[in-house]
Write a protein that binds this DNA or RNA. Structure first.
Length: 1045
RNA sequence: GGGCCCAUAGCUCAACCGGUUAGAGCACCUGACUUAUAAUCGGGAGGUUUCGGGUUCGAUCCCCGAUGGGCCUACCA
């Protein structure tokens, strides 16, 4: 009985599991890191570099969703990689705590319990509500593995933060660009507050009334148009179109475009209808006119100054020229209510019209209505309820072109919170002027000018940085266009809100004179108070919130008792826009200039935008050096990935398939469904299994439809598979664009992750739980030297990628490297690892190299896969049990290898040889495989009766083959030090490199018997059945075993 | 309506800012494997680069237009 030598082979051995069981083990690492103070230890390492990252505060309401989680993963990649690269980087997580959503939640609760609470009490409850969600989200963010100071986050409701917001406001006041004015703003009548641009959403299919209203021209007007009238027309009305009948009572003017062509259209009863020429036909159709009869066309400038009679108020609406008038919709004459529209307001200002808005906070008409409207009983009516009344009344006056009840479906702004349609309403608010000179800045640019200049400066710096291989400025570069457009077009910033939960605008009003005061002195005083006692102080009775005496515009000092406090709070976007000033500026090791802001691309209108404006006032420049944006999480159809959205589409899909089944197209439906990545054959089989054997195709089709689009809650992924797999997904897709998220994509990311994990596992196994020498301590084999050269290239590529935030490239590079190692290097090293004696020089060279590879790769992936990297570290013999963490490592290095380029060439030649080998070997091996399969099917012995498959003649593994390949002398030279080892490195029994063309078979069975232990045919097997190498290895093994026995 | 962006294999991504035959990985088909075995290695098939024009000796790349999708926005009166 020959000895079984397997136990003497040094096969891979490691406790590092093939499957991570991450969902179970991640919490253990988290606990360990927390108890060992890992984060503090990372920051305490002595480094020269510094990188300032600033967390954009998520809103402290509700659970984290895909976007948040992705965002947090990316942020963690940044801070961890910077620390790894030797740039000390802190992560101070923050939360946005003030604002309407929280206040409304609390409000609802209060109303439900029918309580009456004071503003102070209200603020206490809001604070509790925000704190509750901060806790929830903190847990969720920590679970993802994000490293930071979680116990001391920044909260916008902290006293220090509130004080800095006031100081930021002070900078605007110092620049003299804060003013109070009555202007139209987006107003939510339900929440009873003005809304910022960022608080407005849009409903896709909002249905509004659609009315054409006639304003009869006076005699002078008709006279002016006499030459333009169609035959038989003696009176003329200007026709406007609107979807908001409730604003008709506030109509003060009509806008026309001076350069546009207009005509008088002959209407019913011979009445002339003044409309844009381009729209005459459409209007005629709407009015159901039999024929389109128009007079000669003329330019709108002819109309400027004419007057149209308001349908039910005793006043005239003048026709003004305005650029915003279009001829694509409506009538080319625009109903203008300066109190209810931004352009209307602008036109009003230009012509001295008041921002007349007879509508209250609650969306009801006020006593400011005109007599006509009052006579209709509109006062106190809710405006949207009044729409039909106004319409009906206009109809009864004969002022409508069509019968009442016409509707139009269009996009319409709604409140981000309560989803009710918004109105535009002129109110008295605090504004920041975009186009007034900033007095405190040199050259007194306007805020808009400065902001635009900063945008361009960042873009230019970004272009410069790109040349240096780093990312700064707008990343990706189109961020510039994005934010530029917004800053260029935005109106003055309305910063006041009529709510309670926020930072008060510390303005005061003199009770007697009505003068409103908001000065830097006052702001500084209040900031100090807030810093000590928080903004709640504003709502207390304590007089000391205000300075004892307050300076009025004329310079006189008046006692504070004569003033009342402004009840408004500051726009929350102003607060978060001040975060750099509240969080980073006060810290000695951070400062107000932040290296990186990183948020979703929607923040071009949000946080990036408001931070830029605050930065321009406070610092005179942008607060950030780089702004990195990412896209949105979508499903595999490219649609936003949200629960409700997917539900809706699931239903649509089901309906569609049901319809096809009913039409008898079940097979088609199934085939269509199977083309989608969701409905795989496995899924089909699954569905069949679930539904029982008697399943009809119809049922299968329906079942697929149900599963076709699946919502996978993020917390489920994390709880069942581990946070790291989510991180693997985040790094697997391209965050610059929309990121596809589906089971299929997730699985792909997991596969890539497993590839890396298994490669590392193999190398850990090779080390067999014993420390290996360092690469500097042994003479390295040429192939090992090459592995290190390759590692050096990988490291260089990854470092550059990290500096450019190209995390995907880092991961892809590592995965590719692992693949390369697996297929070539590790495969080529197996013989010496398994079969050489434990003390073999060649083997020790491999171990040293693999230890170095594992160690380096663990460090490289640590920012992205912090748990698995630590798992590797725990199982790396040299570090196991020492309580160290991979996260304390710095960027890995490789010892310099002489003539790395020649080695690279040699391996390239080896690869070419390898291709050649496979090309000739594959058909031979394949033939045997085919024969085996055929024999199996036929139930006979494989190879029986066929000489080519005789046991001594066939080749079923490369190691049994001797291959002959042609190779020129030059090519052979390239192989250099690898030439003598070619057969081993290629896993062949033997290789012959011929310089002349080969005649006959290139593949033969390698000569000689195979060694009983290593199965190699080297022609040197002794009488004991072992090759000398194995003989020695067995002796060494036996000696060691004897020693321990 | 406007601004910005995206579209390459069934899927996720490449292709050195115009240059050989558009590359990987996964999935699929297929072979090997007492020595990485829920692993690993080999082979194969799969593309009119969304469509239509244009510039050019040459276009996945530049320009114009269309289609589909995303984010943002508005003065849809």
């Amino acid at each position: 009985m020959p000895r079984d030598y397997k136990e003497t082979c040094l096969l891979p051995k490691t406790a590092f599991p093939m499957k991570g069981d991450l969902f179970k083990r991640e919490p253990q690492w988290l606990a360990r890191w927390e108890s060992s103070g890992l984060y503090a230890r990372i920051l305490a390492r002595p480094v020269d570099g510094r990188f300032v990252f600033h967390d954009g505060p998520p809103y402290a309401n509700g659970h984290m969703h895909y976007g948040h989680i992705l965002n947090n993963a990316l942020k963690d990649f940044v801070t961890r990689s910077r620390n790894l690269l030797g740039e000390r980087t802190r992560f101070i997580p923050g939360w946005d705590c003030h604002g309407l959503p929280i206040e409304l939640n609390v409000d609802r609760e209060v109303k439900r319990k029918k309580e009456h609470v004071s503003p102070t009490e209200m603020r206490v409850r809001c604070r509790d509500e925000a704190a509750k969600w901060v806790d929830v989200q903190r847990t969720e963010r920590k679970r993802l593995g994000v490293l930071g100071t979680w116990e001391t986050p920044y909260l916008t409701m902290n006293q220090g933060f509130e004080a800095q917001v006031i100081r930021a406001l002070k900078a605007f006041v110092a620049n003299d660009i804060v003013y109070r004015g009555k202007k139209p703003v987006q107003w939510c009548w339900h929440c009873r507050t003005a809304l910022a641009e960022a608080e407005v959403e849009y409903a896709d299919a909002h249905v509004s009334p659609s009315i054409y209203v006639k304003f009869a021209l006076d005699a002078a007007g008709v006279e002016a148009l006499r030459a333009k009238l169609p035959d038989g027309v003696t009176r003329v009305s200007a026709v406007i179109w609107t979807t908001t009948p409730w604003t008709i009572p506030a109509n003060l003017a009509i806008a026309v475009h001076p350069a546009l062509d207009y005509v008088v259209l002959k209407g019913a009863d011979g009445e002339g209808l003044l409309v844009a020429a381009a729209l005459a036909e459409a209007v005629a159709k709407s009015a159901k006119l039999d024929a389109v009869v128009v007079g000669p066309s003329f330019k709108g400038e002819l109309l400027v100054g004419l007057q149209g009679r308001h349908p039910f108020e005793a006043r005239w609406s003048t026709l003004f020229g305005a650029d915003h008038v279009e001829s694509s919709a409506g009538t080319g004459l625009v109903h203008t209510a300066p109190g209810h529209g931004r352009d209307d307001y602008k036109l009003g200002v230009a012509h001295g019209l008041e921002a007349y808005a007879p509508v209250g906070d609650d969306g009801r008409y006020t006593g400011e209505l005109g007599d006509g409207a009052k006579a209709m009983g509109l006062e106190g009516q809710f405006i949207f309820d009044a729409n039909p009344a106004v319409e009906q009344h206009l109809h009864s006056l004969g002022a409508l072109l069509q019968p009442p009840g016409q509707k139009v479906t269009h996009k319409y702004p709604i409140c981000w919170r309560c989803k009710n349609p918004l109105i535009t309403r002129a109110t008295t608010q605090w504004f920041i002027a975009m186009d007034e000179p900033m007095r405190a800045l040199p050259g007194t640019p306007t805020l808009r000018q400065r902001a635009l200049a900063e945008i361009d400066r960042l873009a230019a710096d970004g272009a410069r940085a790109e040349g240096e291989g780093v990312a700064r400025g707008w990343v990706p570069s189109w961020g510039r266009e994005r934010i530029r457009g917004m800053i260029e077009g935005r109106p003055d910033w309305c910063i006041s809100r009529q709510r309670i939960w926020g930072v008060p605008i510390p303005a005061v009003q003199h009770k007697a004179t009505g003068e409103v005061v908001l000065t830097t002195e006052l702001l500084e005083h209040v900031a100090k108070v807030f810093a000590e006692r928080g903004a709640d102080a504003w709502y207390s009775d304590d007089p000391s919130v205000l300075p004892a005496e307050i300076r009025c515009a004329d310079g006189t000092l008046r006692p504070r008792e004569e003033f009342s406090r402004d009840p408004s709070i500051i726009d929350v976007w102003f607060e978060s826009g001040s975060s750099f000033y509240a969080v980073c500026e006060p810290e000695a090791d951070l400062g107000a200039k932040v290296d990186l802001y990183l948020e979703g691309s929607d923040q071009h209108r949000g946080w990036f935008h408001s931070s830029l404006l605050v930065g321009c006032a406070v610092l005179g420049e942008a607060p950030y050096r780089a702004v990195l944006t990412h896209g949105f999480v979508c499903d595999d159809q490219g649609r936003p990935y949200s629960k409700s959205d997917i539900r809706r589409r699931q239903e649509a899909r089901r309906d569609e398939i049901t319809a096809r089944v009913n039409k008898g197209e079940a097979l088609d439906a199934v085939l269509t469904a199977m083309k989608s990545t969701w409905a795989t054959p496995e899924k089909l089989a699954d569905a069949k299994k679930r539904l029982g054997k008697k399943t009809s195709l119809d049922d299968v089709a329906l079942a697929i439809a149900q599963d076709d689009i699946e919502f996978i809650p993020p917390e489920k992924i994390i709880a069942e598979q581990g946070a790291e797999l989510f991180r693997a997904w985040a790094v697997f897709v391209d965050y610059e664009n929309d990121m596809p998220y589906s089971r299929a994509v997730l699985n792909q990311a997991i596969d890539a992750y497993r590839r890396v994990r298994n490669t590392l596992r193999f190398m850990l196994g090779a080390l067999r739980e014993e420390p290996a020498p360092l690469v500097t301590e042994v003479a390295l084999e040429p192939i090992d030297q090459w592995a290190l050269v390759r590692l050096g290239e990988v490291l260089a590529k990854c470092e550059k990628a990290y500096r450019q935030y190209a995390f995907r490239e880092v991961f892809a590079t590592v995965v590719e490297f692992c693949q390369d190692l697996s297929a070539l290097y590790l495969d080529a090293s197996k013989d010496r690892l398994y079969n050489d004696a434990s003390d073999s020089v060649r083997r020790r060279s491999a171990l040293a190299t693999m230890q170095h590879l594992v160690r380096s790769l663990a460090a490289v992936i640590a920012p992205i896969l912090p748990f698995s990297a630590e798992d590797v570290w725990d199982h790396l013999p040299a570090f196991a049990g020492k309580g160290d963490s991979v996260h304390l490592e710095f960027w890995p290095t490789v010892p310099s290898i002489e003539d790395g380029a020649a080695l690279g060439k040699a391996v390239q030649r080896l690869r070419a040889l390898r291709d050649g080998v496979f090309a000739v070997l594959e058909p031979v091996v394949q033939a045997w495989g085919v024969e085996k399969q055929a024999a199996k099917k036929a139930g006979r012995e494989p190879g029986a009766g066929d000489a080519t498959f005789a046991p001594g003649a066939r080749i079923d593994h490369a190691r049994d083959a001797a291959v002959t390949l042609e190779l020129s002398a030059a090519e052979r030279d390239e192989l250099g030090p690898l030439a003598p080892q070619a057969a081993e490195l290629l896993g062949l029994g033997a290789i012959e490199l011929a310089t002349a063309p080969v005649a006959g078979d290139r593949v033969r069975v390698a000569p000689g018997p195979a060694c009983d232990r290593c199965w190699r045919r080297r022609g040197d097997v002794g009488a004991d059945g072992l090759c000398p190498r194995c003989r020695h290895a067995v002796d060494v093994f036996d000696r060691a075993a004897g020693a321990t026995a």
